[in-house]
């Protein structure tokens, strides 16, 4: 996984609460058996005026001129600012895959849905939770200044505005460490293979019905 330490980029505002993973990447694109190539279909129903299907050349499709990611400079955004409960609904990891594939590295919202939040960390995407009032203030700042950029520092756990205001955020130690180092979580867990085997041996005695073939 790509490590994440510092990042600075253009902020795209998506001022809506409860953006669900069906909206982030609609179902028809979930038929792919790959992890890549979802970026062109990110927010497909909001982004294009026609009906999207897998395998289309999206550069030829009619775009919704009102959708933020279709406008300069937001088409080059790498930081997404969103409303509360972002990523609710389906557990599809295709949602963070699509956001990452489009070019996003940081998501900022007052809250995220649990499964989506967890999925982001597996893909080098940093979800940052900031208080609702702060996010509201950032929306106004972005609105006033297209091309507004934020600088995010994971080790320091800060977001810095162009005026130099520093906003601190919380993140749990394990997720921070994994993302900073870009570590292979399965590889790390397998270092505890003996503990897993010992657990299984004990459990097999206590609850043998769990081990029926």
């Amino acid at each position: 996984m790509e490590p994440f330490r510092q990042h600075k980029g253009i902020v795209a505002p998506l001022e809506r609460a409860n953006v669900d993973t069906d909206a982030i990447i609609p179902k028809q694109f979930l038929k792919s058996i790959k992890r890549t190539g979802f970026g062109d279909n990110l927010f497909d129903e909001m982004r294009y005026l026609d009906h999207g299907e897998p395998g289309q050349d999206c550069s030829q499709r009619p775009k919704n001129p009102d959708f933020v990611l279709n406008r300069e400079p937001y088409c080059n955004a790498t930081v997404l600012l969103a409303g509360r409960n972002f990523g609710c609904g389906s557990s599809r990891e295709h949602a963070p895959w699509a956001l990452k594939d489009f070019g996003f590295r940081v998501l900022i919202a007052p809250s995220f849905a649990d499964i989506f939040y967890n999925n982001c960390f597996k893909n080098g995407l940093l979800p940052v939770v900031l208080p609702e009032e702060t996010v509201e203030r950032l929306f106004r700042a972005v609105e006033a200044e297209p091309g507004y950029q934020l600088a995010v520092d994971l080790p320091a756990q800060t977001v810095t505005t162009p005026s130099g205001e520093v906003l601190a955020f919380d993140i749990d130690g394990f997720r921070k460490h994994m993302l900073e180092q870009g570590l292979d979580e399965i590889g790390l867990t397998l270092q505890h293979a003996d503990a897993i085997r010992a657990y299984e041996e004990r459990r097999r005695r206590e609850a043998p019905w769990l081990f029926r073939a």
Partner: peptide
């Protein structure tokens, strides 16, 4: 998510 599906399969 799918990364955890893989993690559960592998470990």
């Amino acid at each position: 998510g799918t990364s955890e599906v893989e993690h559960a399969l592998a470990t």
